[in-house]
Each structure stands twice: as C-alpha cells, then as structure tokens.
Design a protein around this nucleic acid. Structure first.
Lengths: 207, 207
DNA sequence: TAGATTGTTAATCGATTAACAATC
DNA sequence: TAGATTGTTAATCGATTAACAATC
C-alpha cells in the first residue's frame, strides 16, 4: 500500500512493537502473532495488524510473523537501522545521567557533542571520548557535524533559548527534559519527557 | 456537571495546563483565556474549554480565567493539592539522578523510601534524610508506610518482578523507567518513561 | 485437509473542532 | 452599550474494533 500519510499515533506505537520483538528475539523465540504481541502489550490484535498494514505485509496466514524479519522491517521504517549522532545540551545532574545512560548507544543514538555554560564543567571528558564544550560554540559545532538530533537537559528558563539555537543550527528533532512547551517551527519534531506530568496523570485516579 | 467518566486523554492534558498556568502565575500574570493558553501550548482553544467543562465552570465570559483560581482548581482535580509519599526502587545511575531531582519534591512528590539489592549501596543516606534499604524489606516497609506511588528504576530483566512486589504491597501507581511493558492489574495505574522510544518516534520523520 | 492467522473492509466508537447563544 | 470570551451543542473527523474472506 502506498504511503497515504501514516497517523503519528501509529508511528508512536511502532517503537513499542519493536521493543517487544527485540525481547522475544533475545529470548530465542522465532515466531509471534498479532494476538500474542497484543496480549503482551495490552493492545488489541486488530490494531497491531492495522498499524502494520500501513507499511506493507509482513506476516503469513496461519503462522504469524517471523520475529527477526518483522524487527528488521520496523527498524527500517523508523530509520533506526543506522547510527544517529546526538547533541546533548546541559550537563548538570540530569545531563550527566543521560550521558552515562547506555540505553541510547545500544539503540544507535550516540552522543557526539555536549554543551554547558558552567565553566567548571567545560573541558571535562565523558566516557573517554566526548569533551564538554562551551555552549557558545553550539551552532558552529552542530552545523559542522551536521547533527540532526538534540537532547535538551537545561533548566526551564533557558530551554526556549537553547531550542531556538538548536533549530537555527539545523537540528530537526529535539528530546526535551525541560518542563515547558517549546515554541518550535513545525518542520522540527519535539518530544517531551517530564516525569512530574506523568505522576500527576496518575494521582487523579488515587484518593 | 456530573462526572460521566472523564476520558484519560483529557486527564493527560491537565498537567500540561497546570504547568503553563504555574508559569504564567510566577510571571505575575493574573488572567488568561483559552485562546492564549492554547496558543502557548499548540492546542485549540475549543479543546481547552471542552476539557475543562468536564469538571465545572472556571471562567467568565469576556475576561477568561483567573490564573490562580484555575490553577488551584486543576490541582484539586488532579489530587496534587497535597503531598504524596513515593518509593524509589533501584539506586543505580538513574535511580540516583531521580533521587536528586528537585522537580518531584517541588510538586509534592517526596521520595520516602529507596530500595536496592547492591549491598554496597545499602545504608547510604540520601539528601540527609532517606536511607537506602535492602530490597528484601520492600513489602513490609511500603505496607507499613502506606505508600501508594512507586518509581521503578531497575534493569528491564527484573522490572516485572519488582512491579509484582509493589502491587502486592499495595502500591496503586507506578512510574516505570524500565523499557518493558509491565503486566499489572488494571486497578493499578502505570506510566512509562523510555527516552529511546521517544527518539525512535522522531527518527521516522528524519531522512 | 483442518486449523490458524493474516490483511482489509465496514461498523462503531470516541475525540476534536466549529459555531454560537449566553453573558461578563 | 460594544467587545470579548465563555460553556455547550452539533458536525466533523479520525481511530479502534469486529468480522471475515483469503490463504498459509
């Protein structure tokens, strides 16, 4: 089927499918079905089949999906069948935890540049490879290295300013840990991580 | 209006509204409108009015919403007009960053118990108040302190096991940083934070 | 073949949006 | 009063789900 603009909500589920498939693969499992996958994820089997149908046919009647194959296909669809260079802005507690987090590198997201404005942190070497740079050199470095993805881990009051610089430098995707809604041209993707909003979404149901 | 089961997607937007209102309040602003709020958040004004209408009438024709008042009301709706005790399981890099993160306490989420299984970390004092405990004492301690919210910051392979213990101990809301979908009774709320899935959701749009 | 499961269609369900009377 | 903005209704839009022919 041709690409008739796949809904973003579908794109949002693909990484979840991918994660589950990777787990099954690592467990040595070879095949799965939309039913089994849905069961594990708390999602209807019809939804999984519908989601996948936006991109092609990946299964076989009677036997379901070959895990390795489907995994590869979803990786390609999401463009994660390659390595990505990532810039990290902010090297406080949070930034440091992010820089040390192995999960990114494992999935091909490599932090290749780190920026800070606290002079005591500049020059520090992280993981024996990346040196913390002064934030004033952000635009030049990002443009030069053609980095397209950035992580924002600075305090809320400066996050918008940082985002503006990133956009100017050509960044096309921002993962922001700052608890504010950024104003960003719609040619640039943004995703937010704010643990507090997640908490507040749950307390509604508690008494 | 009576509560005819408010959609969860609406509940999910309330913390965002609350965050924006807090920001405006701190900036000294007194009134806002659904239009202004929507503009700042990239959401339609009709949607904001519709969302709020599930809970009552909070504005005035012609002038809009008094920020302090609306903020208070949303806080009450979300049950964040109080303090919450939180248990943290896992005190590795991520757990430590979470324990040090001021954002939780600022919003009334206080980490009152921390559990680990690495004996070298047990007994350590965090922020001059909470002592890292052996995970074997988890059930007793959580039951005893009647803690209803927990943060899971353990490696994926043990996350399900930890979640089961938390549920047994009476926890009703789990914020999980483990990159797996947990199997949890639907009497317990779960929210996930997985930065990698957010990244993968964006790379789809990059080339 | 008999059983299982796909991909897809059509029906249902739910959420968003536009429009406007009410009213501050 | 004139202008602005609410809360709500109805229309639209989009997503989920059920059902099933196709087929491995």
């Amino acid at each position: 089927m041709a690409t008739t603009e796949v809904p973003d909500i579908v794109i949002g589920r693909l990484p979840i499918y991918l994660r589950a498939l990777t787990l099954m693969d690592e467990a040595g499992q070879e095949f799965t079905s939309s039913q089994e996958l849905g069961q594990k994820l708390g999602i209807g089997s019809a939804q999984i089949r519908k989601d996948l149908s936006h991109f092609g046919e990946f299964g076989k009647q009677g036997t379901g999906y070959e895990i390795k194959y489907l995994r590869e296909q979803i990786s390609k669809i999401l463009h994660v069948d390659r390595d990505w260079s990532v810039a990290l802005v902010g090297f406080g507690d949070l930034g440091q935890a992010i820089a040390n987090y192995a999960g990114f590198a494992n999935e091909g997201f490599h932090i290749q540049a780190i920026f800070e404005n606290d002079s005591t942190k500049i020059g520090q070497k992280v993981n024996d490879q990346v040196v913390v740079e002064d934030i004033t050199g952000l635009s030049e470095r990002i443009t030069q290295q053609k980095i397209k993805i950035a992580i924002v881990a600075v305090p809320a009051p400066v996050a918008q300013e940082v985002a503006d610089k990133l956009v100017d430098a050509g960044v096309k995707a921002i993962l922001s840990y700052a608890p504010i809604t950024l104003s960003i041209p719609d040619t640039v993707r943004v995703q937010y991580i704010d643990p507090v909003t997640h908490m507040q979404r749950m307390t509604y149901y508690l008494d």
